[in-house]
């Protein structure tokens, strides 16, 4: 019994000292993302999401910048859609390598950044047949997939398969 108490005490001590390899989130501070738009500019990578924007020379730097500028803990794992704007299709390998987003996230293309307002609701009703996982598989097989194109019309966004 004493051994058990000592073991539990040690675990709790390690936990409070931050010595355990587990990190937890303050759930109420999480800022879950639904739609992530990324564009490749001359300055680097630009990420636009419901939680704010992030700039950086690379995808990971832009992600870090978004984390730092947001009012809470930006949570990429809930992102359902990734919109690759302008030449962002070129940084797909880097996005895939960083594993920031879920493989199930649906991928779209767009010529320019779209208004964030209402974009997730619209894209949820217009499912893409290309996911991040599909892109990864295609990349490993040396193939190239073309995600559907998202365009802005007078009546709002429109997906063209």
């Amino acid at each position: 019994m004493k051994i058990w108490i000592a073991a539990v005490g040690l675990v709790l001590l390690l936990a409070f000292a931050g010595g355990l390899p587990f990190s937890n989130h303050e759930t109420q501070k999480l800022l879950p993302l639904h739609t992530v738009q990324v564009e490749l500019t001359e300055d680097g990578v630009h990420i636009v999401s419901e939680a704010g924007e992030g700039y950086g020379a690379t995808w990971s730097e832009a992600v870090r910048a978004l984390h730092e500028s947001a009012s809470g803990e930006v949570f990429f794992d809930t992102a359902e859609q990734l919109v690759l704007c302008s030449r962002a299709i070129n940084i797909v390998p880097e996005i895939l390598e960083e594993k920031t987003l879920r493989p199930a996230a649906q991928v779209y293309r767009s010529r320019e950044l779209q208004p964030v307002e209402g974009l997730n609701e619209y894209l949820s009703s217009q499912e893409s047949d290309v996911s991040l996982g599909d892109l990864l598989a295609a990349q490993e097989e040396g193939m190239r997939l073309q995600p559907p194109l998202l365009v802005q019309t007078k009546s709002g966004p429109e997906v063209r398969q």
Binding site: F22, S23, N24, H25, T27, Q28, L30, P32, D77, T78
Partner: peptide, 24 residues
């Protein structure tokens, strides 16, 4: 699930949990 592995929750469920905890 909510404190350590929120990524394992379905998005809608996680969103519902986060929204319910916003002011707590």
């Amino acid at each position: 699930m909510s404190a350590f592995h929120p990524e394992m929750l379905p998005t809608q469920l996680l969103t519902a949990i986060i929204e319910s905890k916003q002011a707590v």
